[in-house]
Design a protein around this nucleic acid. Structure first.
Length: 121
DNA sequence: GCATTGACGAAGG
DNA sequence: CCCTTCGCCAATG
């Protein structure tokens, strides 16, 4: 059996990183999700930080990961500084039909997409 | 090996 | 309502 890196870890067969990437890729165009929602969906509701940490490594990952569709629970584009340019995130969102005002997603609740709701269009 | 940080979030004061 | 603390896990110094 694969040894877990941490005794508290019930042998994560899927890498948290890959898992996060997978979920983010499923975010529909014109929608946004939050780190906490992803973390919760993965069963690590209290590890929202890990999600953000993974996103940091998502840079250059294939296929392209729409990290710009991931914001914090506030609907704020907290990670915009990690993109090629700070304006790229909001710019991409706007092109997808998401209105962004000063790093804040408008109608966030309306644009919000939860992986757990996956079936919701 | 310990201390600090990190694209977060919820709870407490 | 604003600020502080805790939690969670991994990376980095």
């Amino acid at each position: 059996m694969p040894k877990s890196t941490t005794p508290n870890n019930p042998v994560p067969e899927r890498d948290f990183f890959a898992d996060v990437m997978d979920v983010v890729r499923q975010v529909p165009r014109g929608r946004v999700t939050s780190y906490g929602a992803i973390a919760k969906y993965l069963g690590a509701a209290r590890s929202s930080r890990m999600v953000g940490w993974c996103m940091n490594r998502a840079h250059g990952v294939k296929p392209k990961v729409p990290a710009h569709r991931v914001v914090n629970r506030n609907g704020l584009l907290t990670g915009k500084h990690h993109f090629a340019t700070p304006a790229q995130m909001e710019d991409l969102l706007k092109k997808e039909g998401v209105t962004v005002k000063k790093d804040q997603v408008q109608d966030f609740q309306k644009k919000f997409w939860d992986p757990a709701q996956g079936l919701r269009l």
